[in-house]
Design a protein around this nucleic acid. Structure first.
Lengths: 117, 117
DNA sequence: GTATTAGATCGACAAACGTCAGTGTTAGTG
DNA sequence: CACTAACACTGACGTTTGTCGATCTAATAC
């Protein structure tokens, strides 16, 4: 990967000409970018980020009924956030009679985490 | 931090009683969660994520005129995305005559990156 | 059986989002 | 000077989002 540390002032081009050629192209493949953006978007809400935080730190699976009182939103709203996290492939759930237990899917955050490092 | 690996089935409580006490509380401070969610949200769009990717991999500062042709959106739209990244404190820009050069603010992604690890 | 609980889904709403065409501003070119 | 290029901003648009109250489903308690 070539690096250009210098800030290269351009010259204004004549009418009709493009100002310059791109010197850097996206490295991250389109689909990787799409996938990572999807994960980032799912984490882009404070409640969801904290949900993931709780689930990650709790090595086991956590009952929804324990999650609801942690946040100042209604139960349907929390359910909605959990669904978003499920749709993004970050968490999954397991029904156990009347209760639902959520957990973070191992390595779900790995790709984004690696890129971010 | 106590860990509960077991999946503990609950008992249905009598009328009027709460089903259970939360066993895990959010560890990430509210404001940290807010800040990280803000960054994640800004990265939650494929174009913005790729913009950050290009800017990060290019150690110097990159002219907007080099960024525009990389994406299939209009110049105003790209400008809008760059503004979002600026508002989130991820990138900053520097005017140089007719051109604007963007760069990633060092450590802007650090907090999120660390938490994600 | 009936009553109650945990949780998901539905419908509605305002707010925020991504996009574009148009416009404005500033700075080089000739 | 007039012209044009680079970029930000505005206004409009259709879509998505976060939230709630109400409702539905499934399972347990009595």
């Amino acid at each position: 990967m070539q690096v250009d540390l210098e800030l290269a002032p351009k010259q204004k081009r004549a009418a009709g000409e493009r100002c310059c050629e791109p010197v850097v192209y996206p490295d991250v493949q389109r689909d990787h970018a799409l996938r990572m953006a999807e994960v980032a978007k799912a984490l882009g809400d404070p409640i969801r980020l904290q949900l993931v935080d709780v689930l990650r730190r709790h090595a086991g699976k956590v009952c929804v009924c324990e999650l609801v009182p942690l946040f100042d939103v209604s139960q349907p709203t929390l359910s909605h956030h959990l669904k978003k996290l499920r749709d993004a492939g970050i968490v999954d759930s397991e029904r156990q009679g009347l209760w639902a237990y959520y957990y973070v899917i191992p390595d779900a955050l790995k790709e984004l985490s690696t890129w971010l490092t």
